[in-house]
Amino acid sequence: MKYQTNRKAIILLADGTIFYGKAVGDKEGTAFGEVCFNTGMTGYQEIFTDPSYYGQLMVTTNAHIGNYGGNNEETESGTVKISGLICRNFSYNYSRTRVDESLQSFLDKNNLFAISDVDTRALVAYIRDNGAMNAVISSDVENIDGLKKQLAEVPDMNGLELASKVSTKEAYYFGDENASYKVAALDLGIKKNILRNMASRDIYVKVFPYDTTFEEMNAWNPDGYFLSNGPGDPDPLKQVIQTTQDILAADKPLFGICLGHQIIALANGISTFKMHHGHRGINHPVMNHTSGKGEITSQNHGFSVNYDEAISNTNLVVTHQHLNDNTVMGLKMKDKACFSVQYHPEAGPGPNDATYLFDEFIGSMKKKTA
């Protein structure tokens, strides 16, 4: 078993600010991406494998990462999707009954560079004050000028299309083919736990590549359609927006999560914008305006729907709002069986306050097939 060594490493932010740490496992490496932070106290493996984090350097605010090892069942996609890990204390020792390997072994298999011994409280405070920005983490601590030049060439997340990087290349099925309902899911970076939640509710899912047309999906004759979560800016996804408009024009049941929520807004003429530093964690408070109840939710997004445009749109109702900053967390169309949420009702990790949304999706399909 490897233990922490003294190989120095740095975090260089796009504005020139530098934070210091040590390379995990004495590994040499360099990784680029948008630096962001997640406040979850658990669920690091699910976070690292969530396709929505593609191209991002993840700062974990929990002080201990790796202390419960890794489990093969706790992944949200086939590979690690973050571009690099930044943490305070990396635990080489781990303890849990259900464990398959150490986190270091898991990260090594996925060729992920990570640094520890970082003052993550100071780094997170800096991101909160100055906003999410591109950064590089590296063990090449003597090559600051060279790293700055490489960092300057990394594209900004604003305007960046990334769904194509994580979407399936070929359609595939999930669940029981004899289930009561068939759902066509557009894979913009779908998490496994979304599919598990649908399959457990008697839904058979066919997952399509991100650029599939409505006509191609409709040929399968599904009872409903789903737009998944995913990384990057929603605005460049013109084909996906057109497909969504075609689904709505055909008056088919439609449910969207996260990036899918933003796509539904864009399909209705509501713009989106890049947030200052986004929402990423498993304890975000949301108000459900329909039920009047609060929900503790899992969130992971750096873009949001324009609130003023949403409330003035005559075709839509804002059903959910974030209690910290009043951003739009849910939309529902008045004359269509279409609704969406910005957060993650499937959790993975996180609480299960919002799993009822999958049942509402089934309800919308029942009405259409009755």
Rank of each mutant, 00 (worst) to 15 (best):
F37R: 05
V99E: 13
S364Q: 14
A163Y: 11
F273P: 11
M365N: 07
P51I: 13
K274M: 11
T79A: 14
K366P: 05
N352C: 15
F214T: 02
V183C: 03
K191A: 13
Y210I: 05
Y343E: 02
T213R: 01
I47F: 15
D359R: 08
V317N: 07
G292P: 01
L13G: 04
V141R: 00
N134D: 07
L323K: 08
I11W: 00
T355I: 09
Y20K: 15
A249K: 08
M329D: 10
D119T: 14
M217H: 01
H301W: 05
E142K: 11
Y181A: 05
D145L: 01
Q299R: 11
G330D: 00
L147K: 00
H284E: 10
Y54A: 08
L12W: 01
K8V: 04
N229M: 04
M133K: 10
K192W: 11
T5G: 13
R121E: 15
L248F: 13
P231N: 01
K182H: 11
G224T: 04
N134Y: 02
A132F: 09
D129F: 11
A199L: 04
K165N: 10
L188R: 06
Q104A: 15
V118R: 08
G33C: 06
E360H: 12
M41V: 15
A23Y: 02
